[in-house]
Design a protein around this nucleic acid. Sequence first.
DNA 1: GCCCAGGTGGGTA
DNA 2: TACCCACATGGG
Length: 214
Amino acid sequence: MLLDVFRRLHKAYGPQEWWPADSPVEVVVGAILTQNTAWSNVRKAIRNLGEADCLGWAALRDVPVPELERLIRPSGTFRVKAARLKSFVAALWHDHGGDLGRLLSGPVAVARQRLLRVPGVGPETADAILLYAGNRRSFVVDAYTRRILRRHFILSNDDDYEATRALFQQHLPHSARLYNEYHALLVAVGKRHCRGTAVCNGCPLSDLAHDERE
DNA sequence: GCCCAGGTGGGTA
DNA sequence: TACCCACATGGG
């Protein structure tokens, strides 16, 4: 079933070439800034950071918090997110010498625990960093994933984050490439057909069993 | 003007 | 464990 969903989405939308970022730093920054936030707002904040030459680990470490807050303001909850960026950078420099590759190295489960210890990095942010900044095999579950799969009865309401992630990892070939593409495709279909009160018309999954109620 | 967005952490019972 | 709530901007 999960592979069937993937094939439908891939056929409909093709390769997504994710994450939308030019560097691992930008992936991490984007993963934190997009927490409960529309990507269109994150893009503005990242553009500000780029123009201020703040898309490097040393620059993020050295930029004063008020300045960082000003730059990322368009992404919302900017005080919270400035603190989270700072806590990530502090952990990276304190524990791994500013080397993201080291932070993300070793068994995936170990690297994941390292990330989850950073204040402001929860399971989704950790998995997005592992998969898209580190090319590590960790499936990313987001709001779209849950909304779409619940609508088609593939998930139940009481499947939490870890249960959902485990479901994907147990039923799919163990491939970072596949995890990458699959999550990106779920976001693609979610933005088009499973957002707020949006209906399923034209959705590549619309002929699967689905729940009309919202 | 209202609702929502590619979450997380802290507080309360 | 299971809910609430704050965080905050910008687009539809």
